[in-house]
Computed example of a mutant assay.
Amino acid sequence: MTYRAVLCGCGAMARGWLNALLEKPELKERVEIVGLVDLDASAARARAEEFGLSRAEIGTDLGEMIERTGAELVFDIVVPAARRAVVALALSRGCHVLSEKPMAASLEEARELLALSQKAERIHAVVQNRRYIDGVRRMRRFVESGAIGTLTGVHCDFFLAPHFGGFREQMDNVLLLDMAIHTFDAARFVSGRVPETVYCVETNPEGSWYAHGAAANAIFTLSGGAVFTYRGSWCAEGERTSWESAWRLVGSKGMLTWDGADRFEAAVAGSDAGLLRGAELIDVPPAEDETKTHGHASVLIDFLRAIETGEGPETVGHDNIHSLAMVFGAIESARTGQPVSLTA
C-alpha cells in the first residue's frame, strides 16, 4: 500500500525527513508526498524543488491540503508553539500524525493530544530519532544482558556550542526543551526505568548567545533506586562531547562507558580478594537488528508498521509523554528551586 502524506513545516528540519523518505527504498515505495504546507509558501516551493517533488501540491492551509489531496498521513515539522493546532487538525481530518519533538509545548497540550488521538482512533507518534541510533540500542541490550548487574546509575554529559540562529536562540529553556529531551528519552529507553523525581538547576552562562536556559544540571531518581544525572550546555566552547552525549552506566557488578561515537568500554569486578578488587574488561556486543539503527528512517518505518498492524509504535504519544514530563519537570524544578515529582 502507498500512503498519501502531507508534510507540514518546510524549514531546515524537513530535510532529514525528506532524505529518509526519498532515499530508503522501503519508504520511497510506500509513501508519496502529495503536499507541502508552510505559512511561507515560498519555503514549501523551495523544499519541493530541492527534493524533486514536482507533483506535490503547495499550500499554506493544512486542512485544505488534506481535503485536496486525500492525505492519510501528516508529517508535522512545525515549531513547538504550533504543534497542538497542527496535530489536532490533522487528527480531526482522519490522518495519522508523526510529529517532530517535543510532543507538545506543555504537558496540558500533550494530554489533550493523547485524548484527541484516542478519540480519532489514529496514531500520533513523535520523532525521537536518536533512540534508534546504533549506540543507544547497543547500550540497552547490554543493560538487559545483566553483564554489569543491576543498573544503579546513568550519567550523561552534553557540551556543545552550536550557533543556530533563528527561533532556538530566542527560546526560553532552550537546552531542556529543544535538545535535552533526546538524552532524557534515551536514558529512559536504555535504563528501562520510570523517572520518579527531578531536581534541576538551569542557567544562561556569561557569553551565551541564547536568550534563556543554555545550560542545565539535573538529577532524576528512577524506579528501582537508580539515579540519572545530566550535565549539559549549548554554549560550551572547547573540548566538546558528541551530539549523543557521553555516557557512563554503573551497575552492581561493573560499568559501561560510551563516548557517543565509536568507543565502548565495559568492565566487571574481578575475582581478586581484598579491599581493592581488580576489574576485568569485557566486550560490548554490536547491534544485531540493523533495521532499527537508521534514525529518522527507523522511526518512519516503525510508524508505518504500527498503522498496518495496529500495534503502537515505539515512540507513540502515550509513551513519549513520559520523556516530555522529564523535560517539564526539570523546567519546573529550575523555576522553583525545589524537587518535582514526576509520578503523576
Rank of each mutant, 00 (worst) to 15 (best):
M1S: 12
C8Q: 10
W17P: 08
N19G: 11
L22K: 04
K24S: 10
E26K: 08
R30S: 07
V34L: 11
A44V: 06
A46H: 10
R47V: 12
E49W: 10
E49Q: 15
L53M: 03
S54W: 12
R55V: 06
E64A: 12
E64T: 15
A71R: 03
P80E: 02
A82G: 05
A85E: 14
C95Q: 01
A104Q: 04
A105N: 09
A105I: 02
E109T: 05
S117P: 02
E121M: 08
H124N: 07
R130W: 05
V136N: 12
M139H: 10
R140W: 04
F142Q: 01
E144M: 04
S145Y: 00
G146I: 03
T150D: 13
L151S: 02
G153S: 13
P162K: 13
F167S: 13
R168S: 06
N173S: 13
V174Y: 03
M179K: 15
T183G: 11
F184G: 01
D185S: 14
D185A: 09
A186L: 07
V194C: 14
E196F: 06
W209D: 05
N217P: 06
A218S: 04
I219D: 10
F220W: 06
T221L: 06
G225C: 03
A226S: 05
V227F: 09
S233N: 01
E244N: 14
S245H: 11
A246H: 11
S252P: 02
S252A: 09
S252T: 13
T257K: 07
D262Q: 15
D262K: 08
A273C: 08
L275D: 12
R277S: 12
G278C: 06
I282G: 06
E288Y: 07
T293H: 06
T293V: 09
G295N: 14
L300M: 14
I301L: 15
I301H: 12
I307E: 06
H318E: 12
I321W: 02
L324Y: 07
M326Q: 14
V327A: 10
E332T: 13
S333H: 00
G337R: 01
T343V: 10
